[in-house]
Write a protein that binds this DNA or RNA. Sequence first.
RNA 1: GGGCCUGUAGCUUAGUCAGGUAGAGCGACGGACUCUUAAUCCGUCGGUCGCGGGUUCGAACCCCGUCAGGCCCGCCA
Length: 536
Amino acid sequence: MHWSDVIGERLVSSKTPLHVVNTGITPSGEFHIGHLREILTGEMIVRGIRAQGGDARFCFVVDSADPLRKVYDFLDEAYEQYVGVQLFRIPPPDADGRPDMAAFSSGRTYADHFLEPFLEALKILGVQPELVYNHTEYLTGRYVEHIRTAIRERDKVRDIIERISGRDLPEDWWPFTPVDERGCQTGLQVSHVEGDLIHWVADDGRTGACDITKGEGKLPWRLDWPAKWCNLGVTCEPFGKDHGAAGGSYDTGKELCELLGGTPPEGLTYEWISLRGEGAMSSSSGNTVGPIEALRLVPPEILRYLIASTKPSKAIEFDTGMGLVTLADAYERLLRHDLEAKLEDPEISRRQRVSIEDDIVSTRLSSVADTGERPSAVGVTFRHLAMLVQIRDDDEAVWAMMPEDVGARSEFDARVRRMRHWVNSDHFPEEMRIAVRDAPDAERLSNLAEEEKPLHGALVKQLSDAIASGSWNEATLSRCIPDAAREVEQPLRSAYRLTYELILGVDVAPKLAPLLAAMDPSKALWLITGEPQQAS
RNA sequence: GGGCCUGUAGCUUAGUCAGGUAGAGCGACGGACUCUUAAUCCGUCGGUCGCGGGUUCGAACCCCGUCAGGCCCGCCA
């Protein structure tokens, strides 16, 4: 059973009429594909719940009330003044990483700056969560009761955190993080509580008070999370393995949630995504592939397939090179096969059955539109398209090579655009690059095996004829090689292999006819014969 | 120190929760295909299930130990 159905079934059996699947991310820097796993895992759980006959809301809490932790590498030193200040209260960086005050005064915040492109990526991926800005929840008093309870039960809160996480909290610890008038939490210490006013004193002697009914200050993370669960009625939430470890914030959150009067959600821990050969992704190290960048390389379905087909507990190494082709191959192969029909086969083993069923669900989840259907097979594979855009610079010419059933032009154009972007990027693997030889392979030509000689002669004749008859086009050329092979009664494979070796220097390559047709005929014949040709 | 996750064929992995002869894809190799060959189809090769014990008629699976990688116990998904 597919992981999304396993958790879907568990949730549905709990009898709650409407589930709430929640996700959350702090918009402190550039989003990367690791964050995509959080959201996509959540969205796939929602689909799993529906597939099992239940219903669910899907929320995405933007942790806009969190503070800026430090001046990240991509930020100018000018951000030093904002360290400790809540993200919704600081200006967005401009192209140079400097605070963009003009944008800020028109209402655009630091949080917005990083969130917007991510939301754009989600739209392309067909993910549409209900957005919840955490700072708005604080400002509108949604957490007032939770804060009151936490303050009232301060000792119990402390006990839970110390007992489960094993860390020692200082004597003057309070389950509340106050902020000053700038929204900065650095250097503040709660002095005393007076009703809904949390009084604080700063390192430099300043004093003040936060009115919790006005959303001033916030709960510390370990309480903030369970308070969100209570606020939204969350019944399931996927989270990164950092939160999932024993003694981590999910463990303490469960008990704190009950203390706050709620029921803790089902948790699902997922592993991190790393870049192949680069280690874990981190917003601050700049070692990232953003969701937008990823979507400029690969179709959204394939990105979804990567998440859907990998169990959450498995780490993913995102490979922007050859791995992308392998992934696309696997995905497209599944689409081509009639998996439902395979299930009908009484011969298959129980294990094969399970595996086919998982493939069906994985491909269904890969569909951007939540229709419950599997996407139909693509007219041109990722791999083949990679070749086509290399031999044709003109998109119109690539389109002309498409079969009838390739689908909508707009979708095709998007695929070609992404493919050209990939081919031109340094992610593109060398082994996929098609390069016609600059000059004939003299050594190969002079060392033709005995049985290759008649074949070679037939090839030369066929291609010369094509030039002579003025029919150097794909239709004619696609006949030349097989005809030559037949003429001398040699296997087709040998004929293609020899031609590839002479033209490209490799023995296996994409379809030959379009490649030849796109070449200058005299150049092609020159490479085959080894003798300079008259320009035709 | 305490804990969690992962370790299965050259590569990616299923199977571990409910113990019952180790499955798949890619790659490799071989074959088929008289408009294709990065396509499709068929076949072959390939696994000490990290390692060592234990429980059991029977262990990849349960238990104990151990090694390796990652992570958490400090608001990095």
